[in-house]
């Protein structure tokens, strides 16, 4: 009986999810029905022309078990000619998460974010005509008795290893052309009393000849010790990742294939 109830609730949730997928389409009505969309359009997109567009996909868990590390994957590769992608979360105390400029790389980026409460997580992709194409998904955050993040787990790794970059390229298999990297950084938001904002600000990916692959600007809500996943596109050979945080600490790392 108890188990059946659980099943029917999850079946119901699956049905709701399927229904919400079905209604999402290109248009001007917020498919996520967020009370903050008007504010977002004004403050994040500066009232520029936009449409909600299914070709901009935001993948994230419906329920985030650990709100400090919510995995988000943005894929705007179905939309041609993307010049910039802005990622933001309507109900976060700091709304803007990151911005990336896919240069030679496909318009696709995976990362993790800190969420304060349940919120839409959106990606707005700007095409050359200045129009924003907006996709997104709701992420519900819950605590969990057994799943509460441990206070004791708060790491001091960054004090010894600040801005250390580790990464790898995949050259074969189903993920050939993929590049993943991790940067040691506390990514402090400045919202915790006594801890000033201290976060990565930019990362530039280039090939060995200096040809630009992708530029990423990161804001406070990106998770501690950020991990990024991107596709290298047509370029071959090593990839250089260069960047800095808001205190001017720089890094420069080469990720060999």
């Amino acid at each position: 009986m108890k188990f059946q109830r659980t099943l029917s609730v999850s079946a119901f949730c699956a049905l709701l999810a399927a229904m919400s997928l079905a209604v999402a389409q290109t248009g001007r009505v917020d498919p996520l029905d967020s009370a903050r969309w008007g504010d977002m359009h004004h403050s994040v997109l500066a009232d520029a022309p936009f449409e909600f567009d299914d070709r901009v996909r935001v993948i994230a868990p419906t329920t985030a078990e650990n709100p400090m590390q919510v995995p988000v994957t943005v894929d705007a590769t179905a939309l041609p000619g993307v010049e910039e992608v802005l990622v933001f979360a309507d109900f976060n105390p700091i709304v803007r998460v990151l911005r990336f400029f896919p240069q030679e790389a496909p318009a696709q980026l995976g990362f993790r974010v800190k969420l304060q409460q349940s919120t839409p997580v959106r990606a707005a992709a700007r095409t050359a005509d200045g129009r924003w194409h907006v996709g997104g998904t709701w992420v519900n955050t819950v605590g969990g008795g057994c799943t509460a993040p441990s206070a004791a787990a708060a790491s001091t790794e960054w004090q010894r290893r600040l801005n250390e970059v580790s990464g790898r390229q995949w050259t074969e298999g189903p993920n050939a052309g993929r590049l993943r990297l991790r940067i040691v950084h506390p990514m402090d938001t400045g919202l915790v009393a006594g801890t000033p904002a201290f976060h990565l600000e930019e990362i530039n990916f280039t090939d060995a000849a200096g040809k630009r692959l992708m530029r990423v600007e990161t804001f406070e809500p990106v998770s501690e010790n950020p991990v990024f996943t991107l596709q290298r596109g047509a370029l071959a050979g090593p990839v250089d990742a260069r960047g800095r945080d808001n205190n001017g600490n720089a890094f420069d790392a080469r990720i060999a294939p």
Partner: peptide
């Protein structure tokens, strides 16, 4: 294999665990 965390979350459970109570939610956690 270079999977991103969302791809790991999306992986199906192997058949021997699929019917174990709370397998899907504990896997996600």
């Amino acid at each position: 294999d270079g999977l991103d965390m969302n791809e790991v979350l999306a992986r199906p459970l192997p058949p021997e665990f699929a019917s174990l109570p709370l397998a899907a939610s504990e896997y996600r956690r």
